[in-house]
Design a protein around this nucleic acid. Structure first.
Lengths: 207, 207
DNA sequence: CAGCATACTAACCGAACGTTCAGCTTCGCT
DNA sequence: AGCGAAGCTGAACGTTCGGTTAGTATGCTG
């Protein structure tokens, strides 16, 4: 178990990687143990020998993803958007992460909570230092910030289709999206406060 | 077929509503025809009598959702965020919509494309009239705008957990989120342009 | 070399799935 | 009243699923 990292071509690792790929592509329930075994080049029985059950395999995939995402820096890295994006350069990890958030595994919930916590801390520090605007509701803003960070990942299929992405590398599209996101987060979209004050009026009307 | 709307308690409609509810809750593949039939109070065979196959039922659900979403105003309503939010007041419709975007049905793809198109037109008009900021890349901004609009829906489970939502009505939380979103879209998050210019430098370094 | 745990497979199991089908009601029409 | 279509059901079909079992190969340890 100790030197497992150097032997990342073991059947166990191949099964796990195949599962991450297929689970991310199709969703956990559309993928059979047989299909995972076939992609990993082993028998279906070996999958259950190593992971006890399909659910056990899914948990192992979650754990692996979380381990990779945390990187070397512990939970702190979860707030480092650039580092996060770099780690998620692998399409199969991206797909799996998106699926995990939607299928509602406990590991994904914990991960989301941590990301919100780290982001809230980071934005709070920014507010104190003056490079982030003040807000009435920092908690909601952090939750929304993380949601928006994940949105292009979750809707990757549709976003890339709309943007006409065809190249396999996709780095250009990712850059366009990031740049536009930062632009909105810096300058906003609306040039005046009519929409905002309209919303505040609705809010006061319903205490 | 013509007066079907007035007879929305037919077994056919009950099956469709049960399918939307269960598909949205669990995902299409986790739900059996038998479960849908049970919730609708009919036999499993009747489901296939009306919809030919499970896939046919799913398509009928998609079509129904799109019909409801378009409302009376045709595609134009897809850009009216407030109206959209009102239509999606029903939790089961919200859940189903989120699932549809992620399971990648053709209907959902068309819907997404239309939402982006309508939003891009709306934001373009706003730019011309001066109440929306100019952007280098209106197309990407529109895609991102729609993605961000959908993000709290897709991540509803996690967002509501983080915000500590317990009340079944949820109107307060929805209001908090909307208000915060509009706040960000009006004032931005970042108070200066350091992040933005840093990103532009990266971009120029990689032409 | 013997002993034994680990890695792995082929064959199989019961359960649940989507789907089919023959037949039973129930209605609208003439 | 009579008849055909539509709504609807119970019982089965073949398939595929996750999981089990019995057994073989492999490689380490004494």
């Amino acid at each position: 178990m100790l030197f497992m990292r150097s032997a990342d071509l073991t059947a166990r690792a191949r099964i796990r990687d195949a599962a991450i790929d297929l689970f991310g592509r199709e969703g956990v329930n559309r993928v059979s143990v047989r299909a995972i075994a076939a992609q990993a080049g082993v028998s279906p029985a070996l999958v259950l020998h190593h992971f006890d059950s399909k659910e056990g395999l899914r948990k192992a995939c979650d754990a692996h993803l979380v381990e990779v995402l945390r990187g070397d820096g512990g939970a702190a890295d979860l707030g480092d958007t650039a580092k996060l994006a770099a780690t998620l350069d692998a399409p199969e990890l991206r797909r799996y992460l998106a699926r995990a958030f939607l299928d509602g595994s406990p590991e994904a919930s914990t991960l989301f909570d941590e990301m919100v916590e780290v982001s809230e801390g980071w934005l709070g520090r920014g507010t104190a230092e003056g490079w982030v605007h003040h807000t009435e509701d920092p908690h909601t803003r952090a939750a929304l910030y993380v949601s928006w960070l994940l949105a292009p990942l979750l809707l990757h299929e549709h976003v890339s289709r709309v943007l006409g992405v065809t190249d396999p590398a996709e780095t250009n599209a990712a850059l366009r999206i990031s740049r536009t996101a930062v632009e909105i987060l810096t300058k906003g979209v609306f040039a005046d406060e009519t929409v905002l004050s309209a919303m505040d009026n609705v809010r006061k009307g319903r205490p």
